[in-house]
Nucleic acid binder design. Structure first.
Lengths: 162, 162
DNA sequence: AAAATTATGTCAACTATGCTGACTTAAATT
DNA sequence: AATTTAAGTCAGCATAGTTGACATAATTTT
């Protein structure tokens, strides 16, 4: 019989999982620090970054689509979205198919800020991916997709996962 | 300014890096959702969770050590730490070597709450790790360590990385 | 055509969690 | 003895989330 009892006893298992929890905390803390610092110069915060990022990523997305991504309330979103519209970073247009919808696009100014913010996070991922190598990146993707609660969100990444 | 080459390998590269950014957002959003919901019943928030978690993880840690981990101000920490001490989740004791220090420990009540909160995140990691397999987990660890800014934090995970 | 639902927006009030700046106390170090 | 360090405190402020109630316009259902 092969020594298949490779399942670790409870203690090392707990240690492994706790390290996962902590790595998530430290990585996310550092991942958000640079954009946060830049946003301060604009009088914006992390919530503005999220809106700018996802509007750039999904042009012409509706307000409710954005609410589905961010999972915050309409009132919370409207506060930051309203600022971004008033200050000329985001433009709203009526939906063709459904005229109740306000479809969101970045303006030129919005695209510039998006690029500035995303550059820091892209550089961070580029460094981490290059240092770890393609195989590690595939493993990272598998695990981080597994951490998500919803297939709806996992499906956003299907194109390159398969 | 030179025109952007359509078949520039930088374009899929950008897509790959953006997916990393977004996976980080979705995973962290879901990773924090369950503890946040539990904490509401105690009148606590995510900041309390962090303190309880790291005091449990590093028993007898000093206030300044905790500040170094959380990277927030003393004033922000003291608000939540004070609540946790007053409500009997954390106990403070004078340092032996340096009597200025207040070393932090979880009380029984604190350990119970810590266990409840951590259970949800541990289960999430257990699912993701099991589904992805040991090799993917190794890749995940490499990448997420690479995302951190500081060697000081990376070294927290060295024991099992090497 | 009327009724119901949906998409969006708004007002008000509240909570949590971060920040800066100024200041104190006690202990350790120089 | 003077300085630095660890911790705590007070006051005020900003960001970003929450709930609840309500309004308007457009679409869908009956």
């Amino acid at each position: 019989m092969p020594p298949v009892a490779r399942n670790d006893p409870a203690v090392p298992r707990d240690e492994e999982l706790r390290q996962g929890i902590e790595m998530m905390f430290f990585a996310y803390r550092d991942f958000t620090a640079e954009p946060d610092a830049i946003l301060t110069d604009y009088g914006f915060g992390r919530a503005h970054h999220r809106v700018i990022y996802f509007v750039g990523r999904y042009p012409d997305c509706s307000v409710s689509a954005l609410l589905g991504i961010l999972q915050i309330t309409k009132q919370s979103l409207n506060r930051v979205l309203g600022q971004l519209v008033r200050e000329g970073f985001i433009h709203q247009s009526r939906g063709q198919r459904d005229r109740r919808q306000r479809l969101l696009q970045l303006t030129r100014k919005g695209r510039e800020l998006e690029a500035t913010l995303t550059a820091t996070q892209r550089a961070r991922f580029a460094r981490a991916y290059r240092a770890a190598g393609a195989e590690a990146v595939a493993g990272f993707r598998q695990v981080i997709l597994g951490l998500m609660s919803s297939d709806v969100d996992r499906e956003r990444f299907e194109r390159t996962t398969a």
